[in-house]
Amino acid sequence: MSAVGGPRAVPDGAGLFDLPPELAIDTDVARRVIIEFIRGQLRQAGFERAVVGLSGGIDSALVACLVAEAIGPEQLLCLMLPYRTSAAASRADAETVIRQLGCAGDLVDISPMVDAYFGWPESGVVGAAGTEGLIASALRRGNVMARIRMTVLYDRSVTWSGLVVGTSNKTESLIGYTTLFGDAASALNPIGDLYKSQVRQVAAAVGVPEAIIRKAPSADLWPGQTDETEAGFSYPELDRLLYWLVDRRRSVEELDAKGFAPERIAWAMKAVAGSEFKRQVAPIAKLGPRTSGVDYLYPRRRPGSART
């Protein structure tokens, strides 16, 4: 890589997407930090390889590109984990990324596992969850899919001898648009401090295919679903609001004065507060003299912690 830093006239990906000016970042610096972070985390844990679940969306495509740059594509396994209702276009986009990177790729259809639990509503055949499983909400079904994907990723991380690299971005993490122990589960997360608009910027800089950068973000749980229609927000608007609320510590009154609609401010603040539990480890009832996370405080990568 060339020398890092220095102002640039035009942000990466200009024209591909709407980038609020306050969210623009120097992508050379971001890329450098993330690459070293991935290398450092793997080395300190005693691993050379990594596993990424590739959905066909921009977040996981970006993570796969960054991991490949950090450790080489031959050390990366990308897993495609579609359910039978997942869009065919998603899989095609994921395959493009695997082909472009030249990394190992594998497909695990999670439909038999999901259906074995909830059953087959179309034919009325009951699964492990019983008759009640046939009428499970989209939320429940989505959570189970995310956790089955996690199960597969962690299982394959053993045979691949690699760490699972997370793909949650800062926007979805802050509003809680993640499944606890599902997509939120990982050994390290290189993009968890990047808002969606910044993910797009870095994705453009590292060469994620334009079609993936342009398409509407979606959890791909049912046909036509998009994040933005579900949240009632556009990502640039939500990112800006979260940036001023969280990063720049603005009060409700100050956000109001910046022109954000009161109902949007209220929705975002409730979403952030209501998902605090998803961003922290579960509390342990304090009884003994030294308790993990309370007064027994060691770095995760302490001496002797690496796999040998």
């Binding site: 890092v4 830093g5 220095g6 102002p7 640039r8 623009a24 970042i25 120097d26 610096v29 971001a30």
Partner: peptide
């Protein structure tokens, strides 16, 4: 620790 990644300063990092 590096933080406050920025686009609009001389070295791209607020701390620096």
């Amino acid at each position: 620790p590096g933080r406050d990644l920025a686009a609009l300063n001389e070295v791209g990092l607020g701390t620096a």
